[in-house]
């Protein structure tokens, strides 16, 4: 079953003579439970594609359908709800809040979601502990981010992305700041997410980071094409 279907997606930056086309009609499909890696050089538009699918940026043209919903048509409030209920983001720089412990960082989106929906916390704390345990960082639950290693921080960020039971995880260069061992741990964690039925869309400029993906596509000159070595995988 297709979770995501993107057709003719276009996005430019700048205006007039300084305009630069980042996406010139990109097409993409992602099935439920699939991990897709998008490989491309720096500045090729990978993060932009991710941002558009994640609903934190607006396209100039084309369609983005996620679980049957055309998100390019959504208003700001609906987009916010979409991000809260369907999407989890993982960033290259982790973006954990320094003043919160690992557990509190994971719990925060759940508290926002529960509060906005029905005003109650609804067991968010227990869920956070389970997630931290699942990704092997339960022992650092009460520590502040600056005391954690890069790999630990990223795994906490993965737990945060999952706390609202998102069906789609968007990972932007998740291993870009990690050593090979930590990177491997993170990729394993992302793989395990797919095994539980969620979809993962990962963008990277490192070919090694695509090893855990089911499929790899290249983003070149604003368009997507399958990676030649992995065609049909």
């Amino acid at each position: 079953m297709q979770l995501i279907s993107v057709r003719g997606l276009r996005k430019s930056v700048g205006a007039g003579r300084a305009a630069r086309i980042l996406l010139g009609g990109a097409d993409l499909d992602l099935a439920a439970g699939e991990m897709l890696a998008i490989l491309g050089r720096s500045g090729s538009g990978k993060s932009t594609l991710l941002n558009l699918i994640g609903g934190i940026d607006r396209a100039d043209g084309g369609t983005i359908e996620v679980a049957g919903e055309r998100i390019e048509r959504l208003g700001e409030t609906e987009l916010t709800r979409y991000r809260r209920e369907r999407v989890g983001f993982i960033f290259q720089l982790f973006h954990l809040i320094p003043e919160l412990t690992a557990e509190q960082n994971v719990t925060l989106p759940a508290q926002m979601a529960r509060r906005d929906r029905n005003g109650r916390r609804n067991g968010a704390c227990f869920h956070a502990r389970e997630l931290l345990e699942r990704f092997g960082v339960a022992e650092v639950a009460d520590q502040l981010p600056h005391t954690l290693s890069g790999g630990e921080q990223q795994r906490v960020a993965i737990a945060r992305a999952l706390v609202n039971d998102a069906s789609l995880i968007l990972a932007d260069e998740p291993t870009g700041n990690l050593d090979p061992v930590a990177a491997a741990n993170v990729l394993d964690a992302l793989r395990s997410i797919c095994d539980s039925g969620r979809s993962v869309l990962l963008v990277t400029h490192e070919p090694e980071a695509t090893a855990a993906a089911d499929r790899v596509v290249l983003l070149e000159e604003g368009r997507l094409r399958p990676e030649p070595a992995r065609t049909g995988a």
Binding site: G54, I56, T77, T80, R81, Y82, R83, R84, E85, V87, G88, F89, F91, H95, I97, L108, P109, M112, A113, R115, D116, R160, N164
Partner: peptide, 16 residues
């Protein structure tokens, strides 16, 4: 702003 952007990316509304 980065922290607030993370919250918004996670679906925080303006009132949050």
């Amino acid at each position: 702003r980065q922290a607030l952007a993370v919250l918004r990316a996670a679906g925080a509304e303006r009132r949050t």
